[in-house]
């Protein structure tokens, strides 16, 4: 019985090692810049004292490992440094923007699931049927449309041609829930619809496997109706790969949200990152890199735990 816990501990250790390496990479970034980051930021008229202070602030006066541990120590106390661009505390900035990106991510997952689950259920119930063939071909076509093109098409259709929705901008939920949802819809569709294609393909394949298994066949032979059979017997055991996909999605979503957020001018972590990269605002870049890596690692661990809940056989080492 100890082996699953040992396995989990090993995973956690590995995750910590990954995080440490990401932090070292992030802290090493200013060294990779040709020329002096201090001169680039302060201008050629900077005094040696200013340059020394600046380099101390970025940890450029110590070796990378020492700087990393100092950074981690401060980060654990909630201090992620200050932006070079406007002097704002990076922690506050991130705290303002993470909820926006999370809201967008959750909305996108809901869009993807709302499309994928019904389509996959109908497709898997009659494989080779009309719905299945249209869905399979449709998903394949859909996968060829990159996120930024899809977003552009959506803007063109709904905002430019039909004038239904605002093309860009953001209103916080606390300010005006309705406007918030109106501004959320296009970015969420842009992020969620390509995922829907992947979700549909995965869930359909898994459902076909599950429907072949004896417990489902037994329920079927007892005369259980199609809807009940699919929803009560087949969906849960077939949902494991979806959990993985969503978990992996958290990791890749930051890249995707950079695109979608800048396309729709959403003030989330993505636009913070691209702005910081443009302005070589190292403290912000470093914080975004490490915080997003923490997000990926936590998501992976959460997927692992969820797996054990959804399929108890894993926890008991039978699979």
């Amino acid at each position: 019985m100890t082996s699953p816990f040992l396995g989990f501990a090993a995973r956690a250790g590995r995750a910590a090692a990954v995080l440490l390496l990401v932090a070292v990479t992030a802290l090493a970034l200013p060294h990779l810049m040709p020329g002096s980051p201090a001169v680039a930021a302060l201008g050629v008229t900077a005094t040696p004292e200013q340059i020394t202070a600046f380099e101390a602030g970025l940890g450029l006066d110590r070796n990378v490992l020492a700087a990393t541990f100092d950074w981690i120590g401060a980060a654990l106390h909630g201090d992620l440094g200050h932006s070079l661009a406007n002097g704002a505390a990076v922690t506050t900035e991130l705290a303002n923007r993470i909820p926006v990106t999370l809201e967008l991510f959750v909305a996108a997952q809901l869009v993807a699931l709302a499309v994928a689950v019904p389509v996959a259920l109908v497709s898997a119930w009659r494989p080779g049927g009309v719905v299945d063939r249209i869905a399979t071909a449709g998903a394949f076509l859909w996968l060829a449309v990159p996120g930024f093109v899809l977003g552009l098409l959506l803007i063109w259709l709904t905002a430019v041609q039909l004038r239904l929705l605002p093309a860009t901008g953001w209103v916080p939920f606390t300010e005006d829930p309705v406007e918030n949802l109106r501004h959320l819809l296009l970015p969420a569709l842009t992020l969620g619809l390509p995922e829907a294609a992947v979700f549909t393909r995965t869930l359909r394949g898994q459902l076909l496997d599950t429907l072949d298994q004896t417990h489902v066949a037994a329920a079927r032979s007892r005369g259980m109706g199609a809807a009940r059979l699919l929803l009560r017997r087949a969906l849960r055991p077939s949902s494991l790969p979806l959990v993985t996909l969503i978990g992996i999605g958290i990791g890749t979503s930051l890249g995707g949200s950079v695109l979608v957020e800048s396309l729709f001018a959403v003030p989330g972590v993505g636009t913070l990152a691209s702005g910081a990269i443009n302005g070589r605002d190292f403290p912000v870049i470093q914080a975004v890199m490490v915080v997003s890596a923490v997000g990926v690692v936590l998501a992976t661990l959460a997927v692992d735990l969820l797996y054990r809940t959804l399929d108890p056989r894993i926890a008991h080492g039978h699979r």
């Binding site: 990954v18 990779l32 990791g251 890749t252 930051l254 890249g255 950079v258 695109l259 070589r280 997003s292």
Partner: peptide, 17 residues
């Protein structure tokens, strides 16, 4: 390790530097 860093962001950083 390579898969746990956001690809697009890292390439953006490299291009900017």
């Amino acid at each position: 390790l390579l898969m746990s860093v956001p690809t697009l962001i890292l390439v953006m950083i490299a291009v900017s530097l």
